[in-house]
Amino acid sequence: MTMKLNLLLAAALTLGLAGAALASEEESGTFEPKHPQQQQWVWEGVFGKFDRQQLQRGYQVYKEVCAACHGMHLLSFRNLSQPGGPEFTEAQMKAIAASFQVPTIDDNGEAAQRPGTPADRFPAPYPNEKAARAANGNALPPDLSVIIKARHDGSNYTYSLLTGYTDAPSDFSLLPGLNYNPYFAGHQIAMPAPLVSDGQVTWPEGNPAATKDQMAKDVVAFLTWASEPKLEERKELGVKVMIFLIALSALLYLAYRRLWRDVDH
């Protein structure tokens, strides 16, 4: 082996180590979750961006289907109209905010409700964890603010989970109150299938048909944005930074070569 090859190998191994940490996601246990179905998402890749219409549809699915049990406590209504998101108009966003009731204290010091404002966070569906567990057979519906980043291969996983409900195999003993889903670790999940029929959500004119598959894709898009609302800003800046650095490295390489031309080394 030549020296250079050896050193390259060393670098490859060092990096490979990082890869090993990523690759080793296999869970132990009898009922390993099925590998998520791989989808092509529009926000992937160096130049990937969200589809505004898809995010708006996804928001509607979240609000009408998920929000009954799942909170989104890191998201504010104002986020819905900021650049790089669903980009609802200011007026639409304010109307959405006002359609939610948020907890407040009234002038007599009593707990009360008032319509939301842009600065408010999405209100929680349950007053506290105990109430949430009590309403869901002791299972806690997780907050969805960063759910896509909190699951391995999050977008594909969530899509697969939402569309992956089937009947349990005959030899599988399902606990009462649980549902069979091969994409979930252990294959039994407390959440019943949330998307049950085509047309469950009615989108405005000009949108694709609200099939179960389309609703799942759109809500995944919305949740992905909610997990990483600066994704577009990040990638746009990244492209500029990379171009600058490539140009700078070329200049420095030329400077380095010229400088060292007269030195035997």
Partner: peptide
């Protein structure tokens, strides 16, 4: 030669 030195130094400084 000076041009390349100046260009790379200023690009690095601007960055």
């Amino acid at each position: 030669r000076d041009f390349i030195y100046v260009a790379s130094a200023s690009a690095a400084a601007v960055g």
